[in-house]
């Protein structure tokens, strides 16, 4: 459904996209995971025909984003980073406007947005500007869906929204996927990766890796230990000096320590911690999460 081949794009001297390639199959929920400034929005704008790439090709539904931009615009739904709604129009007016933009009506595609719109129903007459973040997000999604697009581009739809709305939003995406809509979504939240079929980890205009979230975490190349003690900061400082340490990162109340495969066992670690006054610490082997992997890739590419 989406084929991207070595896309590059520079603004002035900053290389926003530095050779991006990936493919998204029909009906797939594909996530681009990366921090601010990774180039996610630039990528989305190229795919939604709003920007021209400097080089490389990109096809959406088999159509070229440069040559066939008019046809593509009929088939896609786009939700930009900030919820692009008319703040001074009501929920209903926004929806009607975006429907007529695509030459359709709210009624014609009501089935598609029904589940989302039910939650918005009580606020039909309210101006979009007076909605909560979560409601704005739902309205923006409805507006992007109203013409039953084949492909949905959602640029950071969950940023700045409370956890409850985030969760609901991902549940909505899962339902849309069932209806056969291809979805490309970007997010800075590492923990949302597991909700996608496949993800690309992106930073500084490049994609580190593309795979299913499970495959990515499974291929973590180091041994990972979780160490908890009453004093995270001290643990960090101590473990940084451990001779086997590949990397050590704070994860909330615990510390993740990665060591070369087979480098050191729990005994060596405990012994070292004991020697350095952290005898109270508990350690356990854990599987890596997406965040561990992301940092490992950053480390590798640096």
């Amino acid at each position: 459904m989406i084929q991207v081949q070595d896309i590059r794009k520079a603004y002035n001297k900053v290389q926003a996209l530095d050779g991006i390639s990936f493919e998204v199959g029909k009906g797939e929920l594909f996530g681009i995971i990366g921090p601010d400034g990774a180039g996610k929005s630039t990528l989305f704008r190229i795919l939604t025909t709003l920007l021209l790439p400097d080089s490389g090709t990109a096809l959406v539904d088999g159509l070229d984003v440069v040559k066939d931009y008019k046809k593509i615009r009929n088939r896609i739904g786009y939700m930009p980073g900030r919820f692009s709604l008319y703040q001074d129009l009501t929920v209903e007016e926004n929806l009607n406007f975006f429907a007529s933009l695509f030459g359709t009506t709210v009624e014609a595609n009501y089935d598609l947005i029904k589940d989302i719109f039910i939650m918005l129903e009580p606020f039909r007459k309210r101006r979009a500007g007076a909605l909560s973040g979560g409601m704005k997000q739902k309205l923006a999604l409805s507006c992007a869906l109203i013409h039953a697009p084949k492909v949905l581009f959602l640029d950071e739809p969950t940023t700045g929204v409370d956890p409850v709305s985030r969760k609901e939003f991902w549940e909505m995406l899962a339902k849309l996927k069932e209806k056969g809509i291809t979805i490309l979504v970007s997010t800075p939240y590492m923990d949302e990766a597991s909700l996608c079929d496949r993800v690309g980890l992106m930073q500084d205009g490049r994609i580190f890796t593309i795979d299913t979230p499970q495959a990515i975490t499974r291929s973590f190349p180091k041994d990972l230990w979780e160490i908890s003690g009453e004093h995270v900061y001290k643990l960090l400082k101590v473990l940084e000096k451990f001779s086997f340490t590949h990397a050590v990162h704070a994860f909330g109340e615990v510390v993740h320590l990665s060591l070369p495969k087979g480098g050191a066992g729990s005994l060596e670690i405990m012994e070292y911690l004991l020697e350095n006054g952290c005898g109270q610490a508990e350690i356990k082997r854990i599987d890596a999460g997406i965040e561990d992997c992301f940092m490992e890739y950053m480390n590798e590419y640096a």
Partner: peptide, 13 residues
């Protein structure tokens, strides 16, 4: 908000 995980940890340090 929105910072990469490594920079975030440096910041928290």
């Amino acid at each position: 908000g929105g910072v990469d995980p490594v920079t975030r940890r440096q910041f928290w340090n």
